[in-house]
Amino acid sequence: MRAVTVAPGVSDSLRLDEDWPEPAPEEGAILVQALAVGVCGTDQEIIAGEYGEAPPGQDRLVLGHESLGRVLEDPTGTLKPGDLVVGIVRHPDPVPCPNCAVGEWDMCRNGRYTEHGIKGLPGFARDRWRVQPRFAVGLDPALAPVGMLLEPTSVVAKAWDHIERIASRAVWQPQSVLVTGAGPIGLLAALLGIQRGLSVHVLDRNKTGPKPELVRSLGATYHTSTVAELDFAPDVVVECTGAPVVVLDAMTKAGTNGIVCLTGVSSGGRTIELDAGALNRELVLENNVVFGSVNANRRHWELAAEALARADQSWLNSLVTRRVPISSYADAYTFTGSDIKVVLDFEQ
């Protein structure tokens, strides 16, 4: 069996193992044939040796957390052979903490959670994998070309879920949304904003390539200015770049009672000048909220599956800008300037 693996903490240790062991029954009752895995910046950071953790007793980690497969067997009857399925990435910690105990493992409080292809669990970039029924999400058959988008969609489904929970503090009648960044997360965040009937604006520095048209065909407005130069104060901001200047501008741009959700992760190591007093005044006097959001629990994965099923399938297909066969695996992890979502294809 083929598997794409790394030695965690060792830079540039990526390789294709041709005789990787079959998935152990302990991994889960549902046996899945891999169709594809999506590639993202997390994979690149693990390949660079920045983080990553192999399963206990192993020295290599199978990559891949944006999964898509087809059920081979499920003795539990949860799914049927032939069904499309995606594996939930994060598993609760073994203690468990109060949040993990009630299925809110995305809000784990002690950090002892595990994650497929990232932390302590083998990933999905292998010919076959297993999953427990509680971590298996069935997909509409129409999503076969793009089902690997479910993982990033679950991230923004959680973001919107928490935005709406925070908004319940008062009467809320949002009109406009600003999404900063037009990568996969940003575009999917914009999709979910459009599905909510909101006026969506997407800001990105790319003036050419597929991003402007993808935003416009979604029914949103595309901007290439800075956040500060925008001539409106959005009710909601979903920040997807992690760029420090953009993050700070987003925090001060939201309108009265505005909600700013930070989904981008900054790399650190850079300082910028900040008027902390002015920022404090803005947030307090406008009753604004800034919060961070990462990962997702099963409820968000199910919301994401519903959102993708409602979306225009040709638009979703356009997000996948490269499909790389497993035989050319290294090419999938080398991004180009025009990439949006790169997919490692196990069927080619």
Rank of each mutant, 00 (worst) to 15 (best):
D12K: 10
L16G: 07
P23L: 06
A24D: 14
A36I: 03
C40Q: 03
C40H: 04
G49W: 12
Y51M: 07
E53V: 10
G64Q: 02
S67Q: 05
V71H: 04
L84M: 03
P92D: 07
W105F: 10
N110V: 15
G111Q: 09
T114Y: 14
R126W: 11
F135A: 11
L139T: 02
P141C: 04
P152L: 02
W160Q: 06
I163T: 02
I163G: 03
R165D: 06
R169V: 15
W172H: 08
W172Y: 11
W172E: 07
Q173K: 11
V215H: 02
R216Q: 06
S225Y: 12
A228C: 07
F232G: 05
A233I: 13
D235F: 06
E239S: 02
A243W: 15
V246G: 03
V247T: 10
V247Y: 03
T256M: 14
G269C: 15
T271D: 15
L274R: 14
L279C: 08
N280W: 11
R281L: 15
L285G: 12
F291G: 01
F291T: 00
R299E: 14
E302Y: 08
T321L: 02
P325D: 04
S328Q: 13
A332T: 00
T334R: 01
F335P: 01
F335C: 04
L344V: 00
